Simulated scan of single mutants.
Amino acid sequence: MSWSANAQSSGKNVGIGPENRYYPVQNFRDDFQVYDDAVKAYVPYIVEQHADKTALSAYIDLESNRHYVLLISTQQDGYLFINAALKRKLWAGTWQVLSIDSLYRVYRQPELFLTLYGAPGLGDRQLFIGYPKSATQKTVVLRDDNLSLRPREFSDYDSFLSVGLLFLLATHAFLFSLYHRAFLRFYSLRDLLSLRAQEESFLINRPLSSTNILFTINLSFVLAYLILFVQSRNIDVFASRALLLGGHRFVALTGEFFLLSAVAFLFLMGKYVLLEVLGGLYKLQGIINVHFFKILQSSLLFFTGMTLLLAIVAFNGPTLTWSQNSLLIPLIIFYTARLALLYLAIRSMEPIKNLYLFSYLCIVELIPLIIGLRFAL
Rank of each mutant, 00 (worst) to 15 (best):
Q137V: 04
S348D: 09
H248F: 05
G280F: 02
L80S: 04
S261N: 04
G317P: 00
R233G: 02
L166T: 10
A262F: 10
L377M: 14
L341P: 03
S240M: 09
I82P: 00
W95R: 06
V43S: 04
Y45S: 06
F81M: 13
F28W: 04
F238L: 13
R374Q: 11
K138T: 11
Q109D: 13
T319P: 01
F334V: 02
L226M: 12
A5Q: 07
A38M: 10
G279D: 03
E199S: 13
M269W: 04
D77C: 07
I235N: 03
T336L: 11
T304W: 06
N289L: 00
V251G: 05
D158P: 02
A264S: 14
Q324L: 07
S4R: 03
L355V: 10
L149G: 15
A119N: 08
N316M: 05
A84Q: 15
R185E: 15
N234D: 11
F250D: 09
F258W: 08
L366F: 15
F221H: 03
P24Q: 12
Q231C: 00
I332T: 09
V273W: 11
L369K: 02
N289S: 07
L268W: 01
L147H: 09
L274A: 14
Y79N: 12
Y187D: 00
L327R: 05
I100C: 08
E350K: 09
G286K: 04
A84L: 13
S210G: 09
N27V: 12
F221V: 02
V230G: 01
G121E: 05
E256P: 00
D124E: 13
H248R: 12
Y117C: 10
I46C: 03
L259V: 08
R105M: 09
S210T: 14
Q324N: 06
A51Q: 10
R125Q: 09
E111P: 01
Y225I: 02
R125N: 03
Y104Q: 12
S99C: 07
L309R: 06
Y225A: 10
R233W: 02
V97G: 07
L80R: 04
I235K: 03
S194P: 02
L331D: 04
E365L: 03
L253N: 06
F375M: 08
V140S: 13
L175F: 05
L228Y: 02
L310G: 00
F186W: 13
E153C: 05
L320Y: 10
F32T: 04
K12V: 15
Q109E: 15
S348Q: 10
L142I: 11
F293R: 05
G247H: 03
D145T: 14
Q126L: 05
M306G: 01
L208K: 13
L90K: 04
L184Q: 15
S134N: 11
F334Y: 13
L309P: 00
V14K: 10
R105I: 07
A170E: 12
T171E: 06
L149Q: 08
G255H: 08
A135I: 05
L114A: 02
L331V: 05
T304Y: 07
M269Y: 06
S194A: 14
V69G: 03
R143T: 08
R206C: 05
L328R: 03
Y35G: 06
S64G: 14
R181Q: 12
K271I: 10
L168T: 07
L259N: 07
S348F: 02
G121L: 06
